[in-house]
Design a protein around this nucleic acid. Structure first.
Lengths: 124, 124, 124, 124
DNA sequence: GTGGTCTAGACCACG
DNA sequence: GTGGTCTAGACCACT
């Protein structure tokens, strides 16, 4: 599991961690039941305080992505796939609305915007 | 000039102000050379500390949207229209790439995505 | 605002705090919009770490009882009275079901139990 | 003797075990003098560490429900039936007082409360 | 002044 | 070994 944190970033470290783990779960790299690295180990690897990894894991647990058990560790929750799909869809729509809003401010026509979108879609 | 600030909002007050002024500049409500209300007056109207309006105006000046002259006041800058456009374009592309990435994870086809984009474009 | 914490208690300190503040809100001692003591001040008064009071306030914010703003402080949320009623009702039913379950194990008859309940009700 | 442990539960495993054995004693499924499965066997059946079953049995012994003899095993204690009853009664009263307190905050009348209690009593 | 984040320790309960 | 709680500091952004 590869987590990259940047200090020259306004996003809090714990947010960077929980966001990246969320992404790993959502794209299938982490499956339901998989064990996450212990808070201590992850903290050591990332050279940050254990409290920070704990903060990240707590957020993930609150949002229903993982579960932690004293003495056992933290595990990806057997989340319903629907929940993950739903989250992904919401994120996608939010970004799309944002992009279209900006396009409007730039006075782009619908055709220009869709052409650009098609272009980027093919690149990915 | 209508600025609305919301306390039940995690966005810092100075950000709410500078963002709304930026929008007014972008959509043409504020033209190059126009005078902005004095920091003192704006603070009084919004019933906030002058430090906060100062913070907002400083950000706008730093980002090249306005210019302030001691004893005269603050004015919308004439230049940098291209710079602003460019920034907007970047923000738009970033959001679009994000949306397309998520769409890929959702296994949406290009056609589905473009259809959705067209739909949202018309709504706005 | 009177908060009492006990160290000779398995309940975590932050839980004791958030629970007591919840009670103050639910019984009307704290009204919507009221300011809570700053995390620092409360920590000082209770002679505990600021992180602990912060933990308590975070929980209250997550559960919708209060809102915190950097530079301003923490305030009781203008909660819908319905939400509070609902929480109270749930707590009451949980306790009642628990009591009745125990009564069953004690082989109390319904009449005995209701008599006891009536007695306690009058005392309060 | 049927013990069921759930991993997707924040209640510690040893607590789940001791609680369930307590219930079996309380409702008469386990009589005074009955032998409990050896710690080793129970651990094997539940696929958990023997340390955990040991922890559970120790709690039961501490609370006066069972007695363990080295080399012979663990047995339900004959005495203290009154003590157990008394504990149960206390727990029941505590829960009832709690429920009535909440009912008071909800401005329920005594009649409403007793009606609700009777209803729940019949359901159980 | 306020809350938000982070550190580098510590002790505890659980398995 | 694991996670849960707590301390006593620190720096930062916001008002």
């Amino acid at each position: 599991m590869k987590i990259i944190i940047s200090n020259s970033n306004k996003e809090p470290i714990y947010e960077q961690i929980s966001r990246q783990i969320k992404d790993l779960i959502m794209n299938g790299s982490l499956q339901a039941g998989d064990a996450l690295p212990s808070m201590r180990l992850l903290a050591k690897e990332l050279r940050i305080s254990m409290l920070t990894t704990k903060h990240a894991y707590e957020e993930l647990e609150r949002e229903g992505y993982i579960e932690s058990y004293v003495g056992k560790g933290s595990f990806v929750k057997s989340a319903n796939q629907d929940f993950i799909q739903e989250q992904n869809r919401k994120a996608m729509e939010t970004a799309l609305v944002e992009a279209i809003g900006k396009a409007g401010q730039l006075r782009m026509s619908k055709e220009e915007f869709l052409e650009l979108a098609a272009l980027i879609f093919d690149e990915e």
